[in-house]
Write a protein that binds this DNA or RNA. Structure first.
Length: 535
RNA sequence: GAGCCCGUAGCUCAGUGGUAGAGCAUCUGACUUUUAAUCAGAGGGUCGAUGGUUCAAUCCCAUCCGGGCUCACCA
């Protein structure tokens, strides 16, 4: 039913990356009409001076990449994605999670790229952080061009734009001043000279500037110094810096957290003063922790990328980031299973509807970079978690035994994706379910019956039929006088598995192995599982 | 104070200009002997309030109420 070209469909697509990409498209058309056509489009993502990647970094690059992917469907104009590192920022305080604190303290105030690497592995602290950032982005296969602020300044790439700021010195300053507190206002200048003697980025009053010479004069510790604004001898204060960078690189699109909304507005005004056109922007919502508080790197609340990836696949994290960027979302462990299963639901939908119109609305199309390999998932992640939790399975093979009972024909070979989920489910069990286990000691009567059960299981070590085993379990319970019989099963679970309920025990033993189950029961009877026991 | 987001079933949330959806929870039944899981089914919502646009509003617009967050030092 969908008629029209692929591009027509893309032009009407409702997924938010298409909405964003159309903003860029409209920008291009505006520029063409104004006789300033673009031959390439630039998407930017930026990173603060700490440079250490976190889950928000992943989100921002992933989201920007999706907008670019949508843009490719709308236009033939090449689109670049730049990852820009603010590595020329002065080190304001020593991070407490890095070595060589003493050494770093001596270099406070200097650009990160002028400070030795406390880890000793790279040419500078900034280079170290940049390497970490790039390794992080590469790990997920993002396509980007890396830009170093220091390189841009020192190579002269920014010279023209920096001179443009100098040429509008008062206008730029006067736009920024009202946004500052009284104290900072007194010393503010868009230009932060790099001290020729100490190498520090100085926040000092600028007492004169020379547009023709391209220099500023500042006073520091009673001495007047004149430095060029070009060639990396000055850095711009960050609000002006952002605007200058947009202007210099010709940034067409950049998203940022909503905490930066005032800065976006300010930079927009500055870039207009410079005669440039501010990029299209998107302010996304911040992530909240378990208690609904803003996630902060320094407080360490919330969830790290690695933590997510130990309980769910990368696609589930990407899917989480895809959903409603403008709505605040709780980012905690418990959202992972739902995110995985919602993602699987879209994978299934993708398998059903392979046309372009459907694809453009489907997160899977974005997350798998436009060419999804839609695998079949016969079991949901929630099912796997229940299965692991109920069975106490701690081993892939055992869990697969249970899975086959529900999805005949499935195997790690035929369903590698599902097999990955099996690993995540086991890990989830290990970290969240197992610690909740509460073993108790057996009573004398239970001890006798359990010992008998262990013997019986050992005698039918090769038995693979759950029903047969279940009958044996049942008989032993009856012969030891458990009434109601429910108490017998309860005792098995509480003593041997550390939980008040569990799987059908016969099926469990058959899958887990009767001999192994016998060992499990005897170990439990020995008291090894009890609190305080030495294992 | 400024700005942003949210308000849909008991809970967590999807969703669309044309008789309201999922998961969990609850209840019933099946799985010929515990429970859980699984499967089948059921109940449950004036879609925050009011007004407007429309043949038609949960959806668009305005106002209001309620909840939350961000910013006003630095990046």
């Amino acid at each position: 039913m969908a008629s029209g070209s692929r591009r027509d469909i893309a032009l009407a697509a409702r997924a938010w990356p298409f909405e964003e990409a159309r903003k860029v498209l409209a920008r291009i058309e505006r520029r063409q009409k104004a006789g300033r056509a673009l031959d390439t489009v630039l998407f930017e993502t930026g990173y603060g001076p700490s440079g250490l990647p976190h889950i928000g970094t992943f989100g921002e690059v992933a989201r920007t990449s999706w907008v670019r992917q949508a843009f490719h469907e709308l236009s033939d104009i090449p689109a670049r994605l730049v990852a820009f590192s603010d590595d020329m920022d002065g080190l304001r305080k020593v991070p407490d999670n890095v070595p060589n604190q003493e050494m770093l303290r001596e270099h406070l105030g200097k650009p990160l790229t002028s400070i030795p690497d406390p880890f000793g592995t790279h040419g500078s602290f900034g280079a170290h952080n940049n390497a970490r950032l790039q390794a992080f982005l590469d790990r997920f296969g993002f396509s980007y061009e890396f830009f170093s602020s220091t390189d841009c300044y020192r190579s002269g790439l920014f010279d023209q734009a920096v001179l443009a700021v100098l040429g509008h010195y008062e206008e730029v300053r006067d736009v920024v001043l009202p946004t500052l507190g009284p104290e900072r206002r007194a010393t503010y200048s868009p230009f932060l000279p790099v001290c020729p003697r100490t190498g520090q980025v100085l926040q000092v009053p600028i007492i004169a500037w020379d547009t023709a010479a391209g220099t500023v004069v500042y006073e520091d510790e009673g001495r007047r110094t004149e430095v060029p604004v070009t060639g990396g001898h000055c850095k711009l204060q960050w609000k002006a810096d952002w605007a200058m960078r947009w202007f210099a690189l010709g940034v067409d699109y950049e998203m940022s957290g909503k905490d930066l909304i005032p800065s976006v507005e300010l930079s927009t005004r500055i870039v207009r003063i410079l005669g440039g056109e501010p990029p299209e922007t998107l302010s996304y919502e911040l992530f909240l922790d378990e208690a609904g508080q803003k996630i902060s790197k320094s407080r360490g609340n919330g969830l790290s990328v690695d933590e997510w990836l130990s309980y769910g696949p990368e696609e589930s994290l990407a899917f989480f980031m895809f959903q409603k960027p403008r709505a605040a979302k709780r980012l905690f462990f418990d959202v992972i299973p739902k995110s995985v299963d919602d993602y699987l639901a879209f994978v299934a939908q993708y398998r059903r509807e392979a046309n372009e119109a459907a694809a453009f609305e489907n997160p899977v199309w974005f997350i798998q970079g436009g060419s999804p390999s839609a695998e079949d998932y016969p079991a949901s992640f929630a099912l796997l978690l229940n299965l692991v939790s109920a069975s106490g399975a701690q081993d892939r093979n055992v869990l697969w035994g249970f899975i086959r009972a529900y999805a005949p024909g499935a195997s790690p070979a035929t369903h590698p994706g599902l097999d990955r989920l099996v690993g995540y489910a086991l890990k989830y069990f290990e970290d969240f379910v197992k610690p909740q286990k509460r073993y108790r000691a057996a009573t004398a009567k239970e001890r006798e019956a359990l010992a008998a059960l262990a013997d019986a299981l050992e005698n039918m070590a090769e038995q693979r039929d759950g029903e047969t085993v279940q009958n044996v379990v049942y008989e032993i319970g009856k012969s030891h006088g458990f009434e109601p019989l429910r108490d017998w099963f309860k005792a098995i679970y509480e003593v041997a598995l550390g939980q008040t309920q569990g799987p059908r025990f016969g099926s469990f033993a058959a899958l887990f192995g009767c001999a192994e189950t016998a060992v499990l029961i005897r170990t439990a009877l020995s008291g090894a599982f009890l609190p305080g026991a030495k294992i």
